[in-house]
Measured scan of single mutants.
Amino acid sequence: IDAAQIVDEALEQGITLFVVNNRLQYETSRDSIPTELLNKWKQHKQELIDFLNQLD
């Protein structure tokens, strides 16, 4: 699994991931984030931050 897949998966569930001051953040209108997704974010945090920083 790679960062792009995780970002896409989040988007499919209505969650936008982004980076502020090198910290992973998210925006969503959902009430809660699925635990499975949160765990993936934690496991791949640095990859996600690097990936999202490249997009900007």
Score class of each variant (00 low, 15 high):
Leu48Ser: 00
Glu47Pro: 06
Glu36Pro: 07
Glu47Ser: 08
Lys40Gln: 08
Asn53Pro: 03
Gln54Arg: 11
Ser32Val: 13
Glu9Met: 05
Arg30Met: 07
Val7Ser: 01
Gln54Pro: 07
His44Trp: 12
Gln54Lys: 14
Gln13Cys: 07
Ile15His: 04
Gln5Phe: 11
Asn22His: 07
Leu37Ile: 05
Ser29His: 09
Thr35Asp: 13
Leu37Lys: 06
Ala4Asp: 03
Glu27Trp: 12
Thr16Ser: 08
Leu48Gln: 01
Leu17Tyr: 01
Ser29Ile: 09
Phe51Arg: 02
Lys45Glu: 15
Arg30Trp: 06
Tyr26Ala: 05
Ser32Lys: 08
Leu38Asn: 03
Asp56His: 14
Gln5Leu: 11
Pro34Asp: 06
Phe51Met: 04
Ile49Gln: 02
Val19Met: 04
Ile15Gly: 00
Glu36Lys: 08
Val19Gly: 01
Glu12Val: 09
Glu47Asp: 09
Lys40Gly: 03
Gln54Thr: 12
Arg30Ser: 08
Asn53Asp: 06
Arg30Cys: 06
Thr28Asp: 02
Glu12Pro: 00
Thr35Ala: 12
Asp31Glu: 13
Lys42Ala: 14
Val7Tyr: 15
Thr35His: 11
Phe51His: 08
Ile1Gly: 08
Gly14Ala: 04
Arg23Ile: 15
Thr28Val: 05
Val20His: 13
Gln43Arg: 11
Lys40Leu: 13
Gln46Ser: 08
Glu9Trp: 04
Glu47Ala: 13
Leu17Arg: 00
Glu47Arg: 07
Asp56Ile: 06
Thr16Gly: 04
Val19Leu: 07
Ser32Met: 08
Ser32Leu: 08
Asn39Phe: 11
Lys42Phe: 14
Phe51Tyr: 14
Thr16Ile: 13
Gly14Ile: 02
Asn21Leu: 06
Leu48Tyr: 01
Gln5Pro: 04
Glu9Gly: 03
Ala4Cys: 06
Lys45Tyr: 15
Ile1Ala: 10
Gly14Lys: 04
Ile15Pro: 00
Gln25Ile: 11
Phe51Asp: 00
Val7Asn: 03
Ile49His: 02
Leu17His: 01
Asp8Phe: 15
Ser32Cys: 08
Gln43His: 10
Glu27His: 14
His44Ser: 05
Leu37Glu: 03
Leu37Val: 05
Leu55Trp: 07
Val20Pro: 01
Asp2Val: 15
Asp50Phe: 10
Asp8His: 15
Tyr26Leu: 04
Leu48Asn: 00
Ala4Ser: 11
Gln25Leu: 14
Asp2Pro: 09
Ile33Trp: 03
Asn21Tyr: 05
Gln46Tyr: 08
Asp50Gln: 10
Asn53Met: 12
Glu27Ile: 13
Leu24Tyr: 02
Leu37Asn: 02
Asn53Val: 10
Ala4Glu: 07
Thr28Pro: 09
Ile15Phe: 08
Val19Thr: 07
Ile1Arg: 07
Leu17Gly: 00
Gln13Val: 08
Tyr26Lys: 01
Asp31Pro: 13
Leu48Met: 04
Leu11Asn: 09
Gln46Trp: 12
Arg23Leu: 14
Thr28Gly: 05
Asn21Phe: 06
Thr35Ile: 14
Leu24Asn: 00
Phe18Ala: 07
Glu12Ile: 09
Ile49Tyr: 03
Leu17Pro: 00
Leu11Met: 11
Glu47Gly: 06
Asp8Gly: 12
Val19Ser: 04
Gln43Ala: 13
Asp50Gly: 06
Leu55Gly: 11
Ser29Trp: 10
Lys45Val: 14
Asp31Lys: 03
Ser32Asn: 10
Arg30Leu: 12
Ile1Phe: 13
Ile1Pro: 09
Leu55Met: 13
Glu12Asp: 10
Ser29Asp: 14
Ile15Arg: 00
Lys40Ile: 10
Lys40Glu: 04
Glu9Arg: 03
Arg23Gly: 10
Asn39Tyr: 09
Asp56Ser: 14
Leu17Cys: 03
Leu11Pro: 02
Asp2Ala: 09
Ile33Val: 13
Phe18Arg: 13
Glu27Cys: 12
Gln46Asp: 11
Leu17Ala: 00
Asn53His: 07
Ser32Arg: 09
Gln46Pro: 05
Pro34Val: 03
Ile1Lys: 08
His44Val: 06
Asn39Trp: 10
Ile15Thr: 02
Thr28Met: 04
Leu24Ser: 02
Gln5Gly: 12
Leu52Lys: 00
Ile15Val: 11
Gln25Lys: 10
Leu24Phe: 04
Lys42Thr: 12
Lys45His: 14
Ser29Leu: 11
Trp41Ile: 15
Leu17Ile: 06
Asn39Ile: 13
Ser29Glu: 14
Ala10His: 01
Leu48Glu: 00
Ala4Gln: 14
Gln43Phe: 09
Ile49Leu: 07
Ile33Pro: 06
Asn22Glu: 07
Asn22Tyr: 05
Tyr26Ser: 02
Leu48Cys: 02
Phe51Trp: 08
Asp50Trp: 09
Leu38Val: 10
Asn53Thr: 14
Gln13Tyr: 14
Val7Arg: 04
Trp41Glu: 00
